[in-house]
Computed example of a mutant assay.
Amino acid sequence: MGTAEMGARGEDIAVDWLEQHGFTIVDRNWRCARGEVDIVARHQDGLVFVEVKTRSGVVGGHPLEAITRTKLRRLRHLVPAWFAAHPEHTAGHIRIDAVAVHLIADRAIVEHVEALV
């Protein structure tokens, strides 16, 4: 499985997991000149911007290790850009979360980390 295919599979798994845990998906793979937001979801009275990282097997480290300070800074700048492109959306609270998807053999293990910043 190639990197792009694995990433797409991980995002699909993350979406399923989020929906099963009370999140409503608002947007996926939103792009602008500054970068990409993997998932935007409504949860309770707020919007959650979700970064998804997927790894297969145990080689290559934990998926969340790929979320660096630079990546977090970029995500923080993408949030207002997303709202500017979607003025119809409002939120009581805004949060940036991460979902790690571990693909090991024929199963997926999902870890959700709330409020990275």
Rank of each mutant, 00 (worst) to 15 (best):
G2F: 11
G2D: 12
T3E: 10
T3M: 05
E5F: 10
E5H: 11
R9Q: 14
R9Y: 12
G10E: 03
A14F: 05
Q20C: 03
G22A: 08
F23C: 06
T24R: 15
I25F: 11
I25Y: 08
R28H: 09
C32G: 08
C32P: 07
A33V: 15
A33I: 14
A33K: 15
V37L: 15
V37M: 15
D38Q: 03
V40E: 06
A41N: 12
L47W: 01
V48E: 09
F49K: 01
F49G: 02
R55H: 04
S56Q: 14
S56C: 06
G57Y: 05
G60N: 08
G61D: 14
H62P: 08
L64I: 11
I67Y: 03
T68G: 04
R69W: 11
T70K: 15
K71V: 12
K71G: 00
L72G: 01
R74F: 00
R76C: 10
R76D: 13
P80D: 10
W82N: 08
A84Y: 10
A85H: 08
H86R: 12
H86K: 11
T90A: 10
T90K: 11
H93M: 11
I94Y: 02
I94M: 11
A98T: 00
A98N: 01
V99I: 15
V99N: 02
V99A: 03
A100Q: 02
A105F: 01
D106C: 02
E114C: 04
E114R: 13
L116W: 05
